[in-house]
Design a protein around this nucleic acid. Structure first.
Lengths: 113, 113
DNA sequence: TGCAAATATGCGTTTATACGAATATAGGCA
DNA sequence: TGCCTATATTCGTATAAACGCATATTTGCA
């Protein structure tokens, strides 16, 4: 059993982790990186971001340890740190999908009654 | 293959979903509800929140479909909607744990060198 | 040294979200 | 109706985070 203060600290950490995931551009970056390592320019082009935006979001991901980098000359390649992130995100998507399906069902019922 | 606009919309939805998870009090609420349904007063007491705070956070969880409610008289019981949420959160925790362990390892190396 | 390419940061503004304190609403019951 | 309990909302304020634009930093190379 954990005491309350510890629980709160862990939840704070986990919440910080989640807030790193709560931006659409960062999710797109993570999913892109799930297909393989990319450098900033490639990511910028693939996702149609402007360069400072991509760089700032990558910084957030990096600071939360969700991605890591290797430099080759002036180029910096980003890589996803842990595949379980995508597993977790996919789980969330399936929850989301079922919830949307449920709501769509409700809509139909409403329309048909 | 999904087109870019659709990808962006899905990522936006998923990001909204994640931002519902990016608050320590809401995570504590979810984990409490994982042990079984609770009403607002019980949650308020268990987590040492003040009542409006609990209510507001529960509203966020409800609006994102993470929990659902049943009313009995004046009492409203909250229940977690989908166990996979806890699965996903536990996955994130394990990623977090490994990352902290890795950083702790780096610290030791630094100290010992 | 000096330039070019890749990446990162600073600034100003806008938008979102959390909180406490106070207040409002809803349901049950006399 | 009027009161009590449970839950929700409003208000004012404070903090954080996103964006575009401009600029800085780093590295490789002539």
């Amino acid at each position: 059993m954990l005491n309350q203060t510890l629980k709160q600290e862990i939840s704070q950490l986990e919440a910080d982790f989640c807030s790193a995931l709560s931006d659409p551009n960062r999710l797109l970056l993570l999913y892109a990186l799930n297909d393989g390592p990319r450098n900033v320019t490639e990511l910028t082009n693939e996702l149609n971001l402007n360069q400072p935006t991509a760089s700032r979001h990558l910084k957030v991901l990096r600071e939360h340890g969700l991605v890591h980098t290797t430099r080759q000359g002036t180029t910096i390649t980003y890589e996803i740190s842990d595949r379980r992130l995508i597993q977790a995100l996919d789980l969330l998507r399936s929850v989301m999908r079922d919830r949307l399906a449920y709501r769509a069902g409700l809509m139909e019922e409403t329309v048909n009654s």
